[in-house]
Nucleic acid binder design. Structure first.
Lengths: 128, 128, 128, 128
DNA sequence: GTGGTCTAGACCACG
DNA sequence: GTGGTCTAGACCACA
């Protein structure tokens, strides 16, 4: 499980980190119950601030992706990620809507859009 | 064309405003060449600062959605919105990928995801 | 002598008008002593505000390109345009310098730059 | 890298600031990757508002001269400035044409004009 | 500490 | 009346 960050990106580092962990779980590179690096060691490996890693982990914990034990360290949630609920769907809708709106404006057909989504979905089925 | 803002949201106001204008164009509620409210009047209507409106307008102008004339005010780009180019596709991919990764983690099937996109697409074909 | 304005341009209309008159004189399409349309008729022809034409004319008069008589109307300065003086050179330098600075940054060689200037110069020698 | 502004000038302060930064890059006083002062410190040094500095920086970023990082501050684009493209040339032409038109009116020969450009070009080859 | 966002209020250029 | 510019001062997100 490699993590690559773009320190130049507009996207906050902690967000990138979250996305990479989530992507790792999606690709099954990280299995339920599997241990993740400690805040300290990950921060050192990536050359970033402790606070940044901690913020990412706390949010991942908050959203049910991981568990943080004081002693045992950080592990991928052994019970799996919480299934999609109503809150998730509404949040997803509000995040995708603006993207689709812009796509419509730019004359991107629904087929083209769906094709892109399919390709991305496929990328998570196998290990990239 | 009604605009509704959530002043409490984490999403910056100017971003919400941009999204609403883009959605309006997607839904054909705003036609090419049609005039938009002036910076000042829209700010007054929405109860926000004129600089916030201006920031949204400036970015919409930058991205080719609207034109801003010193005197005539603001109009939807009469030539239509620039078509999807390479930069747009890569940007779109990087925005959608994390959403799909999370969907995969939450056991949302590709069919379910595609269905949501279809619904949203449909919402832009007719006036909501 | 045709005048074409771009009402969508960022450049103020009165500035465009000035430039067109100056270009006309440069191309000898307008000869010293030749009459120009009155403020009123030019504004009507171009479909713009009286004040706009007036502002352009006043500045052209100020800079010695034209004369404005209350009775005889507006004429190209019969004595020709004032020759380049020190003030002109320093003003020209301050206007060109930023353009050349950007050209240098963009790896435009002096030869390429001079070639462009030559082409533009040539365009004023003959009637376009 | 010294910056001098004329607060009385008709030219907006943020434009002057942009030109000075571009000139600094042209003269190699600012190297790719080199850090620029923070918005706040530069504003304090120059005795102007931070928003004015910010506007200049944002536009320089937009045009590819600099990069702005949330934390690391502002740096000259390490990849260098984007090369001249078609849009640049047409923009440059429209900016230079009126200057050459006026030069022609004032009996400035092409040789004199080219000489001035050469001198300015030379000024950017060495540190002034 | 950095830049990002938002507000409030001013004056000017343009037409 | 429009947008453009500038100021002053506030709070927040990020690292």
């Amino acid at each position: 499980m490699y993590i690559t960050l773009d320190l130049e990106s507009e996207e906050p580092i902690y967000t990138q980190l979250k996305h990479q962990v989530i992507a790792g779980i999606a690709k099954k590179e990280l299995s339920p119950g599997e241990a993740l690096p400690s805040v300290r060691s990950l921060a050192a490996d990536l050359g970033i601030n402790l606070h940044t890693v901690n913020k990412a982990y706390q949010q991942l914990k908050q959203e049910g992706f991981i568990l943080i034990h004081r002693q045992k360290g950080v592990v991928v949630n052994p019970d799996g990620v919480p299934k999609a609920d109503e809150g998730y769907w509404s949040e997803l809708t509000s995040k995708i809507s603006p993207l689709i709106a812009e796509a419509v404006c730019r004359d991107v057909s629904e087929e083209e859009f769906q094709k892109l989504c399919s390709q991305i979905y496929a990328g998570f089925q196998t290990k990239e």
